[in-house]
Computed example of a mutant assay.
Amino acid sequence: MKVIPAIDLLNGQVVRLHKGKYEEATIYDKEPLNIATQFKEAGFDHIHIVDLNGAKEGKFVNLPHIKNIISDLGISVQTGGGIRKLADVEFLLDAGLSKVICSSMAIKNEADWIAALKKYQDQMILGMDLKDGKIAYSGWLETAEEDTFHFLERMIDEGLQEVLCTDISKDGTLSGPNTELYISLKKAFPEIKLIASGGVSDQEDLILLDEADIDAVVVGKAFYEHHITLEQMKSLHN
């Protein structure tokens, strides 16, 4: 299993939200490069960064900070937040991002999402954020009507290879990941690379996800709140 350290950016600062609520943001560092450097020095060469301003506003507010991390540390970054059209995907890839995560775009602008999927198949990740079993988008403020499994089936037919799935009810709660959800998704769609996100509380959670053959996991708040060390994360990273 691949362990991917996470940085959430809001107004240029490293934060974590509680269940996706912007009014419940905890600031962990005012300089993102400090946190990214810790990840790099611990041996991680790929990190997950979300532009929370972008997710809400539809523009890449925190891109300068992300570009600094890439150029200063020489690590690869997957990012999401604010991506609304094909031109946005192209802009971010040109800016040096290794992979782009789309959630709102996949629902609200499916034509451009599919075009991006076909043009940059290896670099596109579907951000499938679930709220009460439905796909949420626009900063988790709205939910789609289409059945989650049906939507995934259609996207796989279009060439989708990688999914980042977040159970919003678990995000930022340190209450443990929704392992049953990830197991059911992996069983239904074994061909997909599945990245679990939300709720990881300690090393035991990572062990359970690894034993369930989940491909990758994003770790954020558990690290920031000192529930898991970088050494523990690295020990399960391969």
Rank of each mutant, 00 (worst) to 15 (best):
K234N: 06
K67W: 05
G199H: 02
Y120P: 01
S98D: 04
V3F: 08
M105S: 00
L160W: 03
F151S: 13
Y224V: 03
M105W: 00
G80K: 05
A136W: 03
K193M: 09
K187Y: 04
A116V: 09
A6W: 09
D210H: 12
D29C: 11
E31Y: 12
H227M: 09
L33C: 08
G58F: 11
D29K: 08
Q203M: 05
T79K: 06
E146W: 10
T166H: 04
F39E: 11
A106I: 05
G81A: 03
A55C: 13
D122S: 15
D88K: 03
K56M: 15
H237P: 07
L93I: 11
G58E: 12
V89M: 04
P64K: 10
T179H: 11
Q123H: 12
M105H: 00
K170N: 11
D171W: 00
Q232M: 07
I114W: 02
Y28F: 15
Y120D: 00
V50W: 12
W140R: 04
V77E: 07
L97Q: 10
S76G: 12
L33W: 07
L10I: 10
D215Q: 03
L73F: 06
S169D: 12
G172T: 02
Y120T: 01
G81H: 02
K131I: 10
I114V: 15
T26V: 15
A144H: 04
T179E: 15
G198A: 08
T37S: 15
A25D: 09
A115C: 02
M233E: 01
E31Q: 13
D8A: 01
G12F: 03
C102I: 13
I35L: 13
Q123P: 07
A111V: 14
R154N: 10
S103R: 06
G199N: 01
C102Q: 12
L73V: 06
E90H: 09
E57I: 09
I27A: 05
E23Q: 13
L206V: 04
T148R: 15
L10H: 10
G172N: 02
G43A: 11
G96V: 01
A42M: 09
F44W: 10
R16I: 08
L33N: 08
E90K: 15
Y120H: 03
L92D: 03
C165N: 03
K234W: 04
K56V: 14
E142I: 04
L17G: 00
H227R: 11
